[in-house]
Amino acid sequence: MAAGGDHGSPDSYRSPLASRYASPEMCFVFSDRYKFRTWRQLWLWLAEAEQTLGLPITDEQIQEMKSNLENIDFKMAAEEEKRLRHDVMAHVHTFGHCCPKAAGIIHLGATSCYVGDNTDLIILRNALDLLLPKLARVISRLADFAKERASLPTLGFTHFQPAQLTTVGKRCCLWIQDLCMDLQNLKRVRDDLRFRGVKGTTGTQASFLQLFEGDDHKVEQLDKMVTEKAGFKRAFIITGQTYTRKVDIEVLSVLASLGASVHKICTDIRLLANLKEMEEPFEKQQIGSSAMPYKRNPMRSERCCSLARHLMTLVMDPLQTASVQWFERTLDDSANRRICLAEAFLTADTILNTLQNISEGLVVYPKVIERRIRQELPFMATENIIMAMVKAGGSRQDCHEKIRVLSQQAASVVKQEGGDNDLIERIQVDAYFSPIHSQLDHLLDPSSFTGRASQQVQRFLEEEVYPLLKPYESVMKVKAELCL
């Protein structure tokens, strides 16, 4: 049975990233139509530049190519590739079939990587351009969430054990800070992308030097003109047959890092959902379990974690691919890159769409948070109580021993009897502590235990987050809708 299948058929496997999760716009960027249309555009740009620099290419040939950029006979191309065992030459023939007058000058002087690699770089750039505003929107939604809850005390956790208090907004800023680093890295790697350009079979530009009869300047002009037509500021000066596969490492490393950030955020949300302090959106008709109707599973956060793990592992592909590119190139890269580049971007696209949807509907339960604080705060307040007693004339050592005994009794009630923490009640009825009984409410005010959390939130948002989001103001209103 021949390899390949009808990918629109229910009898043929289709990647869930495309069929179930990723956005239509990201799927289109990695589609065959987008790819092969870009090949034709690159052939047109090459012909236009070659004509401008004096090669015998007519206006009629150029116009014929322009008129057929979208006229792609995919069936013919597939048949040609089956016959020739070469995808680029299959599309040269297919393009030439609908451009008979231009057929002889299509791909003039070029090698397969002229269309293959340059198209990949265009796709990487455009895919990054799709991700950047999506990530900015996630940051914006979380920034709104953090600002609104900047002063809401909550129990902090280290080692997932109760620690000092923080605020809900401050905790959210930990998430935002990681995503801001990801946004900066995505922008950097996007701006650092260079075009492969017009380089020939081993990167020496020998074929173009021959076409222009040894004119170095025209060869350099050709490279520059096509690079500018493709919208790049610069091209690699040095290439082998391909652009260095280190570029793929750079791009997928940034995406993998984004995956790590999203995994951490969504894990926190899942843990908070278990504590009943916070939940992701839950639709009115949504079913959490087929057997347990009360369940409210954090399905979206779980999906993000599941896909983020996949995204983090994909960076190993370009690392290994770059390491086995012998001399000017081997074909070890080809099949692998067809999979890992598309999957990385479709996965990143999915987790950003999902995280935006989550961040637009996060639900906080202040009463649950308050109750958990009441359970733990008495123990945390013991040092403040000791200091207040010393100020009232008591002995630190005597007070410490009193607190120690009462704390152990209260802990026994919590752990052995399943009761509430009654340390404060014990202190309130103990005559030894009568000098500070009137101060206990103040000493137990949760806001006095959150330090500068709310001020940190305000400063972080104003100095770091809002300036970073400013270039994306025009796209901030787009909502994230999930079908599944």
Score class of each variant (00 low, 15 high):
residue 323 S to A: 09
residue 116 G to I: 12
residue 414 V to H: 09
residue 120 D to S: 05
residue 431 A to D: 14
residue 463 E to I: 06
residue 112 S to R: 02
residue 403 I to Y: 10
residue 297 N to G: 03
residue 387 M to V: 06
residue 42 L to Y: 10
residue 469 L to P: 08
residue 408 Q to L: 11
residue 350 T to I: 10
residue 335 A to Y: 05
residue 482 L to D: 15
residue 193 L to Y: 15
residue 144 D to C: 09
residue 44 L to V: 08
residue 354 T to Y: 06
residue 3 A to V: 07
residue 431 A to T: 13
residue 44 L to I: 09
residue 289 S to A: 01
residue 365 Y to L: 06
residue 240 G to Q: 05
residue 338 R to Y: 02
residue 367 K to R: 11
residue 280 E to G: 03
residue 409 Q to L: 11
residue 55 L to N: 11
residue 47 A to H: 04
residue 75 K to M: 13
residue 444 L to S: 07
residue 454 S to M: 07
residue 371 R to E: 00
residue 284 K to P: 07
residue 177 Q to W: 15
residue 428 Q to V: 09
residue 399 C to M: 10
residue 103 A to E: 10
residue 138 V to T: 11
residue 228 E to C: 13
residue 172 C to F: 04
residue 189 V to W: 11
residue 476 M to N: 15
residue 340 C to D: 00
residue 130 L to V: 10
residue 38 T to Y: 05
residue 44 L to A: 15
residue 81 E to N: 01
residue 36 F to W: 11
residue 339 I to E: 00
residue 35 K to S: 03
residue 63 Q to C: 05
residue 346 L to G: 07
residue 134 K to A: 08
residue 354 T to Q: 14
residue 198 V to P: 08
residue 26 M to V: 09
residue 202 T to M: 07
residue 341 L to Q: 04
residue 20 R to I: 04
residue 403 I to K: 10
residue 179 L to S: 12
residue 6 D to E: 13
residue 318 P to E: 05
residue 104 G to C: 08
residue 328 E to C: 14
residue 59 D to I: 06
residue 95 F to C: 03
residue 100 P to V: 15
residue 49 A to H: 07
residue 196 R to S: 12
residue 229 K to P: 01
residue 84 L to C: 02
residue 415 K to G: 07
residue 414 V to N: 04
residue 68 N to E: 10
residue 271 L to W: 02
residue 27 C to K: 10
residue 461 L to G: 07
residue 418 G to S: 02
residue 267 T to G: 10
residue 408 Q to H: 13
residue 410 A to S: 12
residue 106 I to L: 10
residue 356 Q to G: 07
residue 103 A to S: 13
residue 61 Q to N: 00
residue 197 G to W: 01
residue 429 V to R: 09
residue 23 S to W: 11
residue 34 Y to F: 06
residue 467 P to K: 10
residue 215 D to C: 12
residue 367 K to G: 08
residue 24 P to E: 14
residue 121 L to H: 05
residue 112 S to Q: 01
residue 319 L to T: 03
residue 268 D to G: 11
residue 38 T to F: 12
residue 249 I to Y: 15
residue 416 Q to Y: 14
residue 82 K to Q: 07
residue 428 Q to I: 12
residue 330 T to C: 15
residue 23 S to F: 06
residue 182 D to Q: 02
residue 426 R to S: 11
residue 160 F to Y: 06
residue 325 Q to F: 04
residue 409 Q to V: 10
residue 434 S to W: 11
residue 180 C to K: 12
residue 201 T to D: 10
residue 131 L to F: 04
residue 13 Y to R: 12
residue 425 E to F: 10
residue 143 A to C: 02
residue 218 K to F: 09
residue 86 H to D: 01
residue 363 V to G: 08
residue 276 K to F: 11
residue 146 A to V: 05
residue 11 D to K: 13
residue 276 K to Q: 03
residue 368 V to R: 11
residue 361 G to F: 05
residue 286 Q to S: 02
residue 209 L to V: 12
residue 45 W to L: 05
residue 77 A to T: 08
residue 479 K to G: 15
residue 472 Y to E: 15
residue 284 K to N: 13
residue 289 S to L: 02
residue 88 V to R: 00
residue 105 I to R: 14
residue 233 K to M: 13
residue 99 C to S: 10
residue 387 M to R: 10
residue 126 N to F: 11
residue 164 Q to L: 12
residue 318 P to T: 05
residue 401 E to V: 03
residue 229 K to M: 06
residue 115 V to I: 10
residue 136 A to V: 15
residue 249 I to A: 06
residue 479 K to M: 12
residue 131 L to E: 14
residue 149 R to L: 06
residue 232 F to S: 03
residue 48 E to A: 03
residue 192 D to T: 15
residue 76 M to Q: 11
residue 477 K to S: 14
residue 172 C to G: 11
residue 208 F to C: 11
residue 431 A to G: 10
residue 397 Q to P: 05
residue 306 S to M: 03
residue 469 L to C: 14
residue 152 L to C: 05
residue 422 D to Q: 04
residue 80 E to C: 07
residue 439 Q to L: 12
residue 269 I to R: 01
residue 188 R to G: 09
residue 71 N to L: 10
residue 359 S to Y: 06
residue 3 A to T: 14
residue 348 A to Y: 00
residue 243 Y to K: 00
residue 243 Y to L: 11
residue 39 W to D: 15
residue 289 S to P: 06
residue 76 M to D: 09
residue 303 R to W: 02
residue 256 A to P: 07
residue 185 N to G: 04
residue 243 Y to I: 02
residue 175 W to I: 00
residue 242 T to E: 12
residue 312 M to R: 01
residue 122 I to V: 11
residue 79 E to W: 10
residue 266 C to T: 14
residue 107 H to R: 02
residue 298 P to H: 03
residue 306 S to I: 01
residue 78 A to F: 09
residue 246 K to P: 06
residue 208 F to A: 09
residue 173 C to A: 13
residue 201 T to Q: 02
residue 209 L to E: 07
residue 439 Q to T: 13
residue 368 V to N: 03
residue 128 L to V: 11
residue 61 Q to W: 04
residue 373 I to T: 08
residue 113 C to P: 12
residue 109 G to R: 01
residue 115 V to M: 12
residue 69 L to C: 13
residue 92 V to W: 00
residue 87 D to K: 00
residue 85 R to D: 00
residue 48 E to D: 08
residue 97 H to L: 11
residue 132 L to I: 07
residue 352 L to Q: 01
residue 116 G to P: 09
residue 461 L to P: 03
residue 7 H to Q: 12
residue 73 D to C: 13
residue 459 R to P: 07
residue 185 N to C: 10
residue 217 H to Q: 07
residue 134 K to G: 14
residue 305 C to E: 07
residue 8 G to K: 11
residue 107 H to Q: 04
residue 390 V to F: 06
residue 167 T to F: 02
residue 57 I to A: 07
residue 336 N to V: 10
residue 464 E to T: 14
residue 89 M to D: 03
residue 70 E to H: 08
residue 8 G to Q: 14
residue 146 A to D: 06
residue 453 A to L: 01
residue 20 R to L: 04
residue 272 L to P: 00
residue 207 S to R: 04
residue 177 Q to V: 14
residue 158 T to E: 01
residue 468 L to Y: 11
residue 324 V to G: 07
residue 457 V to P: 05
residue 387 M to E: 01
residue 358 I to H: 00
residue 469 L to R: 06
residue 13 Y to L: 13
residue 362 L to I: 03
residue 167 T to K: 01
residue 349 D to N: 07
residue 373 I to M: 13
residue 405 V to N: 15
residue 284 K to Q: 09
residue 305 C to N: 05
residue 173 C to R: 04
residue 431 A to K: 13
residue 336 N to Q: 12
residue 261 S to V: 03
residue 104 G to P: 08
residue 178 D to A: 03
residue 190 R to P: 02
residue 447 S to C: 15
residue 376 E to K: 05
residue 326 W to Q: 09
residue 108 L to S: 11
residue 82 K to M: 09
residue 207 S to P: 14
residue 265 I to K: 07
residue 359 S to G: 09
residue 78 A to T: 11
residue 67 S to L: 06
residue 229 K to L: 06
residue 201 T to K: 08
residue 309 R to N: 06
residue 183 L to F: 00
residue 93 H to P: 02
residue 82 K to H: 04
residue 34 Y to T: 06
residue 379 F to E: 03
residue 349 D to E: 08
residue 236 F to G: 02
residue 305 C to G: 10
residue 28 F to V: 06
residue 328 E to M: 03
residue 52 T to M: 08
residue 36 F to C: 09
residue 93 H to Q: 07
residue 445 D to N: 13
residue 197 G to S: 05
residue 113 C to K: 06
residue 460 F to E: 07
residue 405 V to I: 15
residue 112 S to E: 05
residue 261 S to Q: 02
residue 479 K to P: 15
residue 55 L to Y: 00
residue 56 P to N: 07
residue 132 L to P: 09
residue 417 E to W: 11
residue 366 P to H: 10
residue 200 G to H: 02
residue 421 N to V: 08
residue 269 I to C: 01
residue 351 I to Q: 02
residue 421 N to D: 13
residue 246 K to I: 07
residue 332 D to T: 00
residue 98 C to Y: 15
residue 327 F to Q: 08
residue 407 S to D: 00
residue 128 L to A: 13
residue 82 K to F: 13
residue 450 T to W: 05
residue 7 H to C: 13
residue 36 F to L: 14
residue 261 S to G: 06
residue 68 N to D: 09
residue 185 N to L: 10
residue 60 E to Y: 10
residue 128 L to G: 15
residue 381 A to D: 02
residue 169 G to K: 00
residue 58 T to E: 06
residue 54 G to C: 05
residue 483 C to P: 15
residue 320 Q to H: 07
residue 333 D to C: 04
